[in-house]
Design a protein around this nucleic acid. Structure first.
Ligand SMILES: [Zn+2]
Ligand SMILES: [Zn+2]
Ligand SMILES: [Zn+2]
Ligand SMILES: [Zn+2]
Lengths: 163, 163
DNA sequence: GCCTGTTGCGTTACAATGTAACAAATTATA
DNA sequence: TATAATTTGTTACATTGTAACGCAACAGGC
């Protein structure tokens, strides 16, 4: 089943998503002997609570409310850690961050970002990447990492727009 | 022949690239009844003079030198126009801009960006996009536009790194 | 437990990137 | 030439991201 399309289904049990993501993150960090500190965990939770990618500065008020320091470096450091562990991705075209639904294995992700409601959804870009890699290699270019983001209309917003 | 790989060949006649890009731009704008004003043309030329994508603020000093106003809105407006005509692309992962080698027809581009020397090169991403589109459509997602950027090492830098 | 090196965090200050708003100048069109 | 539309100048500000440094918390060995 397409766990990948879940963000576009407004009626799913998102509380479950969040808890699953957090428990999975705890396990991953423990296995890798990395420290998922309270700030890092809170930032991850805040990001997962939203289906829209969140900007770094959107996280600050919630951090302050939880009694933490809330200056930019705090949140950027947490985000950097979460990215380094593959727990969140940065969406370059939005300057925003979103939780990764499959942080346990490395993968080539592509984000479908709705220009109507802002919701984003990660899908697998492995076969598209194989194609691009082939071209790149033909030019002698050695791939390190990639940014693949598609803006468009999600099913819900498409319907609203059609009215 | 691979006009597309030209930026990775350090020995090509780049003056020729620039002039070709400018004359092509003039023709395109004239056909579309769009005004390629002095500022817009200068910005386009400055961008083409570099094989590295240029940040907006890197353009300002040159604008000032040419006697133009050089406040951010000036250059952002020129860039917006050039983008609207497909003459330059914005590279989201770098916050920078680069000239399009084929502005005459619409296309799905992918940028190969060297993390060594900063050089970038546009290649065709049509078949990769077909793949992603198929997945997107299966989720009911309607594509509007995309951002595909690959960071890695160009042939030259790869060689240097191997030493 | 206690020392000690390492990592994470608080804090300040600032850099880099991008825009809103409105006035003045220029250009197209009639 | 008059008028409307587009482009540019100008000011001021919003947003996003970092450098640097000192202190606090923690892990691992004794
Ligand atoms: Zn992912
Ligand atoms: Zn939507
Ligand atoms: Zn292009
Ligand atoms: Zn290079």
């Amino acid at each position: 089943m397409s766990a990948n399309s879940i963000a576009f289904h407004s009626d799913h049990d998102h509380q479950h998503c969040i808890e699953q993501a957090l428990s999975s993150a705890r396990q991953i960090c423990s296995e890798r002997k990395q420290r998922l500190t309270p700030i890092r965990e809170l930032v991850l939770k805040l990001i997962w609570q939203s289906h829209k990618p969140l900007g770094a500065y959107e996280l600050l008020p919630a951090l302050a409310e939880a009694g933490f320091n809330s200056a930019p470096p705090t949140v950027y450091r947490a985000l950097e850690f979460l990215q380094s562990q593959g727990l969140v991705h940065r969406i370059a075209s939005l300057n925003a961050f979103i939780g990764c639904p499959s942080p346990d294995h490395s993968h080539d992700g592509c984000f479908l970002i709705c220009t109507g409601c802002g919701t984003a959804n990660e899908i697998e870009a492995a076969s598209a990447m194989r194609d691009l890699q082939r071209q790149a290699e033909a030019l002698g270019f050695k791939t390190q990492h990639q940014t693949i983001e598609i803006a468009g209309l999600c099913p819900n917003c498409r319907e609203s727009a059609a009215e």
